[in-house]
Design a protein around this nucleic acid. Structure first.
Lengths: 339, 339
DNA sequence: GGCGCGATGCTAATCGTTTTAGCACTCGTG
DNA sequence: CACGAGTGCTAAAACGATTAGCATCGCGCC
């Protein structure tokens, strides 16, 4: 393919000025060009396969139709792609494209990435986090909106977060509604270690669970853990079982913990859900494939991405903070207790 | 923050022309500006916090330092984020940014996304696939390189693919070297169904396995399957066990199949690796967390992303096709057979 | 015949850079 | 003192679009 065809080429072929061509091709309302001239221009554009030079247009208009997405930790989780997909879908629907950069968890790198992005004059800036955190965002020109997905900023930018509090309530209620009163929790931290403060969402998840425990008068044994990995779940379950604690229901703070707990129970002949009913959070890819399939609260990253883009591109940022529901995926890991 | 400061602002403050300012700030070699003027310019830029307008520069230079990444199916797999991370790292090192778009598996949508991207004059185009496929790529201006990651094009664009053939050989050899001669394979298709042709890589994986089978004289029972999901692995393993086939080694064509096979064996009391040794492909997130941890060939998506960006941004595209090694993750699922 | 006016379309400035051609000035030199 | 060779810097033309304001034409009307 040869050099790109410019507006001037189209205009020349149609025998008009670039001004007229521009007017017609953008079908500006109120333009007073003859119908025949307009037709000639359109035909020329068609024949030459004209596509406007986006860079030139951006320079003139002062707006690139581009949204910059800065992500902390694209890699550490399989959820990132869901979020990106949501962003991309909504951006596409609104005829914008997405610039993406990785910031790591590093303030200096974040600042650098942010400046690089700002140099490209994006229409909006979206900061995404895989482990919901609160960070400091360097100042940004006031005309470019900043949206935080699954995180928060000291500067009070609008956020999109999962509705963890409600999910905590619902997940605990699943167990309570099924008649379970003796509950074990893996990953729980009754003392709310200070580090949890860094993550914006987990506190709400705990609070939701706590409320239901209090309201329903549940008896609880907890296994504290900060790292939520399968091995921890494995270890935790073994410890709970060894302690002789009595429980028929188990809440795992995420699916990876649940995965480990499953392994421990299987090895010791504890049957799910006959002996212990399990509920959890995230709806990780494995959750549906565990045996029995795991009941869990879905982390709605795709929807969050979509909503973030929506907020970024709508002129009115009405809801400063948006909570996206975490639908409960009811599967086979919970048994109805006959009382 | 107020309006962006332009080069003219800097020049004015330094008392020189924009030409001089541009020359100095880009430290063009061979310019003969006085040291004091240069210092004044630099100081002014510093004080005003000048950052060049990327759009304007792109327009002038005819090159946006941007690479467009088109992805088929960002969502369907947890591997996407690894690939993106690789791309991002290398792009960052070379001072480029990445535009990203989703194409689905749809030719029309791919074409549309491609055009949108081309309008932004990217330095290169990278097409990524999660399920390695061969597609038709619409024509692209000859000055923008096109790289295929984990896929191939009818137009013979350079590709970056996992070294499946070698991995097939190595994975089969792990079993053979450990003394196993009776092997079961789940996901195998001895007849190479025609559809496999669509995927570029799997054929090579099969071929590698086949070679070792022939060279070592292994005896093989296969469970055919095209969908490689946990349920299929579960079902496959049960069927193999029911058939009364004798085997001490099991090759699963991916970790999800292996996951299902593990479940089936656990339920039936077949011990891994004491009764059956298992090897697999992908190094999915769960592979390391299975009990026992699974020996598998890592799909090097991050490295592939990095190499693709490298090819895209280096002037000389020497190796038209690059095979990235799939390192074997040796873990605990294989037992050494004493003969 | 000159004026007003609607219809049609063009000129030229602009966005913020980069870059080439060349101006103005100072020396050194024959 | 005229001339060539440096030196230090600038004016102006791009890049490809958008848009406010102006120009031209034909025609009817007084």
């Amino acid at each position: 393919m040869r050099k790109r065809v410019t507006l001037a080429d189209v205009a020349a072929r149609a025998g008009v000025s670039t001004a007229s061509a521009s007017l017609v091709l953008n079908n500006r309302p109120g333009t007073r060009l003859s119908a025949t001239a307009a037709a000639r221009i359109r035909a020329a554009a068609e024949e030459l396969n004209y596509r406007p030079n986006h860079t030139a247009r951006s320079l003139r208009l002062g707006s690139t139709r581009t949204v910059a997405f800065l992500s902390a930790d694209v890699t550490t989780t399989r959820f990132a792609s869901a979020m990106i997909l949501g962003l991309l879908q909504e951006a596409d629907a609104r005829e914008h494209t997405v610039l993406i950069a990785e910031t790591g968890n590093d303030a200096a790198r974040t600042e650098r990435a942010l400046l690089t992005m700002l140099d490209r004059q994006p229409s909006a800036l979206i900061l995404g986090f895989m482990q919901a955190r609160r960070i400091h965002v360097p100042p940004v020109p006031s005309d470019v909106p900043v949206i935080m997905v699954n995180g928060a900023s000291d500067e009070q930018h609008p956020t999109v977060l999962p509705a963890e509090h409600e999910a905590g309530r619902q997940i605990a209620s699943v167990l309570a509604d099924a008649g379970h009163t003796d509950i074990a929790i893996i990953g729980y931290d009754p003392n709310r270690e200070p580090d949890w403060g860094e993550t914006v969402t987990i506190g709400a998840r705990f609070a939701g669970i706590d409320e239901v425990i209090a309201e329903r008068g549940l008896r609880v044994t907890g296994y504290r853990a900060r790292r939520w990995d399968p091995d921890v779940g494995f270890e935790g379950m073994n410890e709970l079982l060894d302690s002789g604690a009595e429980f028929t229901g188990l809440i795992c703070l995420n699916d990876r913990l649940a995965f480990g707990a499953y392994q421990a129970m299987q090895l010791r002949g504890v049957r799910i859900p006959d002996d212990v009913s399990v509920v959890s959070f995230d709806d990780d890819v494995i959750a549906a494939h565990l045996r029995p399939a795991l009941t869990t609260a879905l982390l709605p990253y795709e929807e969050m991405g979509r909503r973030a883009m929506e907020m970024a591109l709508s002129d009115s940022i009405d809801p400063q903070n948006l909570l996206v529901p975490m639908p409960i995926q009811l599967r086979d890991s919970v048994r109805e207790l006959r009382s």
